[in-house]
Design a protein around this nucleic acid. Structure first.
Lengths: 303, 303
DNA sequence: TCTATCCAATAAGTTTTTCTTATTACAAGA
DNA sequence: TCTTGTAATAAGAAAAACTTATTGGATAGA
């Protein structure tokens, strides 16, 4: 038997609904049905009342099923506890230095701190901020850091990393901007705008954006009225109506007063994915311990 | 975390030797090394003392490792107990009728009974013997049986089954036979022998064997001095020197006085696998419950 | 009673994970 | 130094799990 199946089983048994349980597990409904069937065969017993050709459409537990639910919960809990306790005993490294860069989104940093304190309570995570994502990579190579969040590509083969979900671009506008009523925007609709943006030296996709505009028949050259060093500052300028900006899709602007974000779309209405911002959790290969790897994995799945 | 990794871990931690543990688990050594590494990353801690570039080549547990071993044992035990107890509660069917055929090897039947009583102690397994493997299939269709062991192919699409390991042919000789000193035999070496065999109506590969002999330049026609109805009787005749016989490789003749078995090989020395005897655990699709499926799986992996 | 909707099961094909067979690298013993 | 034993690594094969699309049965509303 495998714990995956127990996790799936517990989800279905708690929801009593395959569709909902599947959503909760971020898995498709057929995958879930299959795994539950396999589990039933493994145990050799029907866990859900389904035999009656679903006369009542409700999913219900059999007697054996509800017993098994209790046991499954215990086993899952025991395995989590075992990992935690083992970690506590075996941690060689109590302090981990994680490098971030100025442009990095505050909410991501918060997420990371949260995950760490929950899943690795004995690790003391020190966040060290660098001016640019490249400075993070340098610091990793020089051994000043254990882990770093940076943008791809990595500029040394001493480094490696785990990619996070790729980010695309969205448009940030003042709520009073004429285009703020649109659902989504095509690049061409931005041709006569004033822009604000991040300082070129820190910028990883400046040229990509320029290329994107050229393709749509205009240029931002001369239309960029101000450059700043952080995305938070940028949103300030946008909210004041100084200009519009493009920001990564993973930047959450919902808490920021006076700005709205609009999806960028192609002419056919499909999402615009030509410009990609790839971030990763990276480390120096020589310094990679199981602990750091486990941490990196944990961050990956939560960001 | 997955239980597979825990099982692997316990094996290595008990053996303190990757190679031996791998053999015990019927898995290759690299697979085991990989899974253990993944487990270490998952837990975030080194479980084995390996970092020291193996100055002593011995595999040793870290402190965290031996704690984790205890926990892993507990979890595995709990999951086995959970399945057993759930089975006990949920079993809908206490009696299972399993059909076998006369030619079937006694030791296999014993294996099956053993597995059942160990893994499904609440099930009362009734063995019913039929004259031929075809009679087993008929009885399944008529609903007289829950499961059956039979030879492939299945003669109805109402039936399905799980194939067992394929069997090939080996030669059974009297210990006093001139060829009994050989290590292995080519078909052509048997051209002047007298034969005993199973009754044609029960025989599934009679024609295959005849074809095999023809290929080697002779025929058994006329050289078959007696036909019998069970493989045990057959070995009796062989031990008396009445003739030689071909039997399935999975037939264990080591307990039978006065006979030896020799592998059949091709001219190039490779094993002769042209004639295949395919057995399967089968069932009627309509009557298939999770319990029967679980039983069938259990038998499959033990035979 | 018909139609639309909801839901789990099934089917087919893809992706991910695990496993296998080399091969390597290192230590220890002859 | 050469051989042997052992675990780690690499690369490709096999198995397991997952995806989307479809089916079929059951309910609810027209």
């Amino acid at each position: 038997m495998e714990l995956r199946r127990l996790r799936y089983y517990v989800a279905v048994a708690e929801e009593l609904h395959f569709g909902r349980a599947a959503r909760k597990l971020s898995v498709s409904q057929p995958a879930l049905s299959q795994q539950i069937q396999l589990l039933e065969v493994e145990v050799g017993v029907e866990l859900f009342l389904r035999e009656k050709r679903r006369l009542l459409r409700k999913v219900e537990l059999t007697e054996a099923g509800s017993f098994f639910l209790q046991e499954a919960r215990k086993i899952l809990q025991a395995s989590n506890k075992a990992i935690e306790a083992t970690r506590r005993i075996g941690l060689t490294q109590k302090e981990v230095k994680l490098g971030t860069y100025r442009m990095m989104i505050r909410s991501r940093i918060l997420d990371i701190l949260t995950v760490c304190s929950q899943r690795f309570p004995d690790i003391d995570l020190k966040i060290i901020e660098f001016p640019t994502h490249l400075a993070v990579q340098d610091a990793l190579i020089e051994g000043q850091l254990d882990l770093g969040v940076s943008l791809l590509p990595l500029h040394s083969n001493q480094l490696d990393g785990i990619a996070l979900k790729p980010g695309y671009l969205k448009v940030m506008l003042s709520t009073t901007h004429p285009l703020a009523t649109e659902n989504s925007l095509r690049v061409a609709q931005l041709r006569h705008e004033k822009w604000v943006d991040i300082n070129r030296p820190i910028h990883t996709v400046y040229d990509d954006i320029e290329r994107m505009c050229k393709k749509a028949g205009f240029s931002r050259e001369g239309a960029i009225v101000q450059e700043v060093s952080s995305i938070e500052l940028l949103s300030g300028l946008v909210s004041l109506g100084i200009g519009i900006a493009v920001v990564p899709t993973f930047f959450d602007a919902s808490g920021i007063q006076g700005v709205v974000c609009k999806d960028l779309i192609n002419d056919d209405g499909s999402p615009f994915t030509e410009v990609v911002i790839n971030a990763a959790i990276c480390y120096k290969l020589l310094n990679l311990t199981p602990t750091l790897q486990a941490l990196a994995n944990a961050f990956k799945s939560y960001t």
